[in-house]
C-alpha cells in the first residue's frame, strides 16, 4: 500500500481531461491498493499481444483500450477464451478499427462467479458501496445490495446475504463455493478506497470481480471522475 495514496491521485489527475480512468490505469490503482489482479499487458501491436499471450499461456482474454469506449462489450471490444494465436490476431485486427483505439489489453483468463463491486459518491449520503451479480447483465438482473460506506465486516456479510443469487456463491450444483473471507476482505478494502477517493471520483465499477474458491480478482475496472477531480 506504500505508494497507493500518492499514486492513486497521480493516476486520477492524469485522467482528468478524459473524465474517466481507463482500464489499465484503473487496475494499476487497485493493484497498488492491494487487490488481486489477473496478469495482463497492454499491447500496441499484434506482435506485442502475441508475445505476452505466449508468456502467460492460452486461453487469454482481449479487451480494447480506448478513451472513447466506456462500455467495452457494448462496442464489441471484448473477446474472452481466445484459444490460440490466430484468434488473438483476429481480435487485434477487429479492435484496431474501433473508435479511439489506443491498444489491446491481453489478459490471463480467470474463472469463477462474476460479481460487480461498485462505488458511487451520493450527493445526500456520500460514498456508497454496491455489490451485485456482475457481468454484462448487471442492469438487467439488478440483483444488488447497496450500503453507505465505510462498511464493517458484518455489513459486507449482510450485503452478500442480501443477493437473490447468493446460492451461486455457496457452491451451487456441485460448483466450488466462493472464498467468503477473501470476498469480505475485498469488499472492505474497496470500501476504504471509496472513502479515500470521495472528493475525486463520481463512481467506480469493478465489473466483473471474479470470485472462486481461491481468489477474488479485479478482472475489469473503470473509474469515473467527479466534477471537481
Amino acid at each position: 500500500m506504500n505508494d497507493y495514496p500518492a499514486e492513486a491521485r497521480r493516476i486520477i489527475a492524469a485522467a482528468r481531461s478524459g473524465g474517466w480512468v481507463l482500464e489499465p490505469e484503473a487496475k494499476r490503482l487497485f493493484g497498488l491498493a492491494g487487490f488481486d489482479l489477473p496478469r495482463f499487458a497492454l499491447a500496441r501491436t499484434a506482435e506485442e499481444a502475441l508475445r505476452f499471450a505466449g508468456e502467460i499461456g492460452y486461453p487469454v482474454a482481449a479487451k480494447v483500450i480506448s478513451p472513447r469506449i466506456l462500455h467495452k462489450s457494448d462496442a464489441g471490444g471484448v473477446a474472452v477464451g481466445i484459444p490460440a494465436a490466430g484468434g488473438l490476431e483476429e481480435a487485434f485486427r477487429r479492435f484496431r478499427k474501433l473508435d479511439g483505439f489506443a491498444g489491446m489489453l491481453v489478459e490471463e483468463m480467470v474463472s469463477g462467479v462474476e460479481l460487480i463491486l461498485g462505488a458511487k459518491i451520493d450527493v445526500q449520503f456520500g460514498p456508497m458501496v454496491l455489490l451485485g451479480m456482475g457481468g454484462t447483465g448487471v442492469e438487467i438482473y439488478q440483483d444488488i445490495a447497496l450500503r453507505m460506506a465505510p462498511l464493517a465486516e458484518r455489513d459486507a456479510a449482510a450485503m452478500i446475504a442480501a443477493l437473490r443469487a447468493r446460492r451461486l456463491l455457496d457452491g451451487y450444483r456441485g460448483a466450488e463455493a466462493v472464498n467468503r473471507e477473501k470476498l469480505i476482505a475485498t469488499i472492505l478494502a474497496f470500501s476504504a478506497v471509496a472513502m479515500d477517493l470521495e472528493g475525486l471520483i463520481a463512481s467506480i465499477d469493478i465489473n466483473p470481480l471474479i470470485c472462486s474458491a481461491r481468489r477474488c480478482v479485479v478482472a475489469d475496472a473503470r473509474i469515473i471522475l467527479g466534477e471537481y477531480a
Binding site: L70, I116, G118, A119, K120, D122, M128, L130, G132, V138, E139, Q142, I144, L146, A202, S203, I204, D205, N207, R222, I224
Partner: peptide
C-alpha cells in the same frame, strides 16, 4: 455513466 451510478 457507470453501472453503479445507474443502479444506485
Amino acid at each position: 455513466s457507470s453501472h453503479t451510478a445507474s443502479l444506485a
